[in-house]
């Protein structure tokens, strides 16, 4: 299948949050989100309370998918960086490791140059972590050592969701 299932474990989750928290400080930005290309929010740091993070994740993924479609039309593989400039706040959106989207929201206290510089560094670290994460998930699947929570799910469990 085109994209294997995305799985997140505690250990990597902490590492990832460490990287984006550092990026938040060093780039002087307001909020940072990591979103799966399918539109699911992976993590967010900073002033996340102010935002509808689920909608933000879905629209970001739609945005990346649409610009990716545009890229293919003109013979590019993808546009790996998008920048949206607003009156006060700006969005820097980039693709990390081919499948995760990094969204940085910043205002005039930072600058596009600074954000680009710091994002580049953080992207390398995130790519390595996500690479390990995928490998770990694959290994677990192969060895059958799955602590998959749904393996023992019953019909009743499912029905209960809809009561």
């Amino acid at each position: 299948m085109a994209n294997p299932q995305m799985v997140m474990y505690d250990e990597e989750f902490k590492l990832i949050n460490g990287v984006i928290e550092k990026l938040l400080r060093e780039s002087n930005s307001k909020v940072i989100f990591l979103v799966d290309k399918n539109g699911q929010l992976i993590s967010g740091v900073g002033d996340t309370e102010r935002f509808d993070t689920t909608s933000l994740a879905s629209l970001t993924a739609g945005n990346i998918a649409a610009t990716g479609g545009l890229a293919k039309l003109i013979g590019e593989k993808e546009f790996s960086i998008l920048f949206h400039e607003g009156e006060k706040d700006n969005l820097h959106i980039s693709i990390v490791g081919g499948r995760v989207i990094l969204v940085v929201l910043f205002d005039s206290r930072s600058s596009l140059g600074l954000v680009r510089l710091r994002v580049k560094k953080a992207s390398e670290e995130l790519t390595a972590i996500f690479g390990r994460l995928m490998q770990k998930a694959e290994e677990k699947e192969k060895s059958g050592d799955s602590d998959f929570p749904f393996a023992e799910i019953t019909d009743d469990d499912i029905d209960n969701l809809f009561r």
């Binding site: 994209n3 294997p4 299932q5 995305m6 997140m8 505690d10 989750f13 399918n38 929570p149």
Partner: peptide, 15 residues
């Protein structure tokens, strides 16, 4: 594909 997050104990699916 569904996204299983063991850290936040969530599972996300797309319909």
């Amino acid at each position: 594909m569904s996204f299983i997050n063991y850290a936040s104990r969530e599972i996300n699916c797309k319909i």
